[in-house]
Amino acid sequence: MEQGTVKWFNAEKGFGFIERENGDDVFVHFSAIQGDGFKSLDEGQAVTFDVEEGQRGPQAANVQKA
């Protein structure tokens, strides 16, 4: 798993971006967030995640709040 920081996340649209430790950004969809209840992330929040190849390039999977 990688570690990163939430760059931004739009809860209304259900997606955002995580900044990886290497400085690259990776797309995150709310469906990739682990846990119960409303799935959202806060700007600046530390997270761990896997990276999978999506239809439009790399995207975060198995996102967990650190």
Rank of each mutant, 00 (worst) to 15 (best):
1 M>E: 10
1 M>N: 11
1 M>Y: 11
1 M>C: 07
2 E>C: 09
2 E>Q: 15
2 E>I: 15
2 E>T: 13
3 Q>I: 15
3 Q>A: 11
3 Q>C: 08
3 Q>S: 13
4 G>I: 00
4 G>W: 02
4 G>A: 03
4 G>L: 01
5 T>H: 11
5 T>E: 05
5 T>G: 03
5 T>I: 11
5 T>P: 02
6 V>H: 01
6 V>L: 05
6 V>T: 06
7 K>D: 01
7 K>T: 04
7 K>Q: 04
8 W>T: 03
8 W>V: 03
9 F>S: 02
9 F>Y: 09
9 F>L: 03
9 F>D: 01
10 N>C: 08
10 N>Y: 07
10 N>M: 06
10 N>H: 09
11 A>N: 11
11 A>V: 15
11 A>M: 15
12 E>W: 13
12 E>G: 12
12 E>Y: 12
12 E>S: 13
13 K>W: 11
13 K>R: 12
13 K>N: 06
13 K>Q: 09
13 K>S: 07
13 K>G: 05
13 K>P: 02
13 K>A: 08
13 K>E: 05
14 G>K: 03
14 G>L: 03
14 G>F: 02
14 G>T: 03
15 F>A: 03
15 F>D: 01
16 G>Y: 01
16 G>T: 01
16 G>I: 01
17 F>R: 04
17 F>T: 03
18 I>L: 09
18 I>Q: 00
19 E>H: 15
19 E>F: 13
19 E>Q: 13
20 R>C: 06
20 R>L: 07
21 E>W: 09
21 E>Y: 12
21 E>M: 11
21 E>V: 14
22 N>E: 09
22 N>V: 10
22 N>M: 11
22 N>D: 11
22 N>W: 08
22 N>G: 12
23 G>M: 10
23 G>E: 09
23 G>D: 11
23 G>I: 04
23 G>Q: 10
24 D>Q: 14
24 D>W: 10
24 D>T: 14
24 D>R: 14
24 D>M: 09
25 D>G: 05
25 D>I: 11
25 D>R: 10
25 D>E: 12
25 D>A: 09
25 D>F: 14
25 D>H: 12
26 V>L: 10
26 V>K: 01
26 V>T: 04
27 F>H: 03
27 F>G: 01
27 F>C: 03
27 F>T: 02
27 F>D: 01
27 F>Y: 07
28 V>L: 08
28 V>A: 03
28 V>S: 01
28 V>T: 04
29 H>M: 05
29 H>Y: 05
29 H>P: 03
29 H>N: 03
29 H>S: 04
30 F>T: 05
30 F>E: 04
30 F>N: 04
31 S>G: 05
31 S>K: 10
32 A>C: 05
32 A>H: 06
32 A>L: 03
32 A>Y: 04
33 I>G: 02
33 I>N: 02
33 I>S: 02
33 I>T: 02
33 I>Y: 03
33 I>H: 02
34 Q>L: 11
34 Q>W: 11
34 Q>K: 12
34 Q>Y: 10
34 Q>T: 12
34 Q>S: 11
34 Q>E: 10
35 G>E: 11
35 G>F: 08
35 G>R: 04
35 G>P: 05
36 D>L: 10
36 D>N: 10
37 G>W: 06
37 G>M: 06
37 G>V: 06
37 G>N: 07
38 F>T: 07
38 F>C: 07
38 F>V: 09
38 F>K: 09
39 K>L: 11
39 K>I: 06
40 S>P: 04
40 S>K: 12
40 S>M: 10
40 S>Q: 09
41 L>Y: 03
41 L>Q: 02
41 L>N: 02
41 L>M: 06
41 L>R: 02
42 D>H: 14
43 E>P: 15
43 E>Q: 15
43 E>C: 06
43 E>K: 15
43 E>F: 13
43 E>D: 10
44 G>T: 04
44 G>R: 08
44 G>S: 06
44 G>F: 06
45 Q>R: 05
45 Q>S: 09
45 Q>A: 10
45 Q>F: 05
46 A>F: 13
46 A>W: 11
46 A>I: 14
46 A>Y: 12
46 A>S: 13
46 A>K: 13
47 V>N: 01
47 V>D: 00
47 V>K: 00
47 V>P: 00
48 T>W: 12
48 T>S: 12
49 F>M: 05
49 F>C: 01
49 F>S: 00
49 F>L: 04
49 F>V: 01
50 D>V: 14
50 D>Q: 15
51 V>Y: 06
51 V>W: 06
51 V>I: 15
51 V>Q: 04
51 V>T: 07
51 V>N: 03
52 E>G: 08
52 E>W: 11
53 E>W: 15
53 E>N: 13
54 G>S: 12
54 G>D: 06
55 Q>Y: 12
55 Q>G: 12
55 Q>R: 14
56 R>Q: 11
57 G>I: 04
57 G>D: 03
57 G>T: 04
58 P>Q: 09
58 P>R: 10
58 P>E: 06
58 P>H: 08
58 P>I: 11
59 Q>T: 08
59 Q>E: 09
59 Q>W: 10
59 Q>P: 01
60 A>E: 00
60 A>N: 00
60 A>T: 03
60 A>D: 01
60 A>F: 00
61 A>W: 08
61 A>H: 12
61 A>I: 14
61 A>M: 12
62 N>S: 06
62 N>E: 03
63 V>K: 00
63 V>N: 00
63 V>F: 00
64 Q>M: 11
64 Q>I: 12
64 Q>Y: 11
65 K>G: 10
65 K>W: 08
65 K>H: 11
65 K>M: 12
66 A>F: 11
66 A>S: 12
66 A>Y: 12
